[in-house]
């Protein structure tokens, strides 16, 4: 059974029942807190790290805002811990000040936009960088920055390889879009499922490693490596056939970005 859980804790009883009945369970992209499930995802801690690295490279000091995802989704915290690996020291030394940090119900971009507006208001626009955990919310953040004439001046992160976000990377309003090729995720999950049919022990699936969950469980997992897309490697998504040139380059002025011509 391949499950994409909206809430990794709430689904536990159902998953436990499936496993008791001998049905192997794959937690697809979202964690399920059951030690017998096989967790296949892009390494979300790494995603958070890559997001923060790109923003940190653009802006190493100053006031940071952090727009996190849904509080019930473990990924929101994984991403946050990855970010901390990059900016943690600078925060401790005082070089970076976190002026706003908030969860966003349902990863809702509209709520992210409202939250960003309020953070900007509270700080009289003195926000130097925004770590947004995904592309949708980055869209909301950038809409709030645009209203203050700050879009493109404040680095913003995101992930998912959303086409609109890749277009924003080309336009220069979003700094990085950590791309997790969903096709790779699907392929890996499919292959793992085939192996589980022969042997239901998840730890015997090729390429697994032990994974410590926030709930204190240890389960087998396959963590895939994501690809951070910035203005410099937009070619990757074009070459992979993930996005058309028309979509990627819509509204981009000629000569600004090499792949758009």
């Amino acid at each position: 059974m391949i499950i994409l859980a909206q809430d990794g804790t709430a689904i536990k009883p159902a998953v436990a029942k499936a496993i008791q009945n001998g049905v192997p369970v794959i937690a697809y992209d979202r964690l399920i807190e059951d030690p017998k499930a096989l967790y296949i995802t892009f390494d979300n801690v790494l995603v958070g790290k890559l997001e923060a690295q790109a923003v940190f490279k653009a802006k190493g000091t100053g006031n940071f805002a952090i727009i996190k995802g849904n509080k019930a989704d473990a990924n929101a915290d994984f991403l946050r811990s990855g970010m901390d690996q990059v900016i943690g020291d600078a925060v401790k030394s005082g070089a970076i000040k976190i002026v706003g940090e908030t969860y966003t119900d349902n990863w809702d971009p509209a709520k992210a936009q409202t939250n960003m507006e309020q953070i900007l208001t509270a700080n009289q626009n003195k926000v130097d960088a925004v770590l947004s955990e995904n592309d949708g919310m980055a869209g909301g953040v950038i809409a709030a920055l645009t209203a203050q004439g700050l879009a493109g001046k404040v680095p913003v992160s995101g992930q998912d390889g959303d086409k609109a976000a890749l277009n924003r990377v080309a336009l220069g309003t979003q700094t990085v879009d950590v791309w997790k090729d969903a096709r790779l995720l699907g392929k890996t999950a499919g292959e793992a499922a085939m192996q589980l049919c022969n042997n239901s022990d998840p730890s015997k699936v090729k390429g697994t490693a032990a994974f410590k969950t926030p709930g204190g469980n240890s389960l087998s997992s396959i963590l895939l490596t994501p690809n951070p897309i910035t203005k410099d490697n937009l070619k990757d998504v074009l070459d992979a056939g993930w996005i058309t040139k028309a979509d990627l380059c819509q509204g981009v002025a000629a000569g600004k970005v090499s792949v758009c011509g």
């Binding site: 990863w107 809702d108 971009p109 509209a110 936009q113 949708g136 869209g139 909301g140 809409a143 609109a164």
Partner: peptide, 9 residues
């Protein structure tokens, strides 16, 4: 306002 339509709109 968002300059986008998203699935969880």
């Amino acid at each position: 306002r968002l300059n986008a339509a998203v699935t969880n709109l």
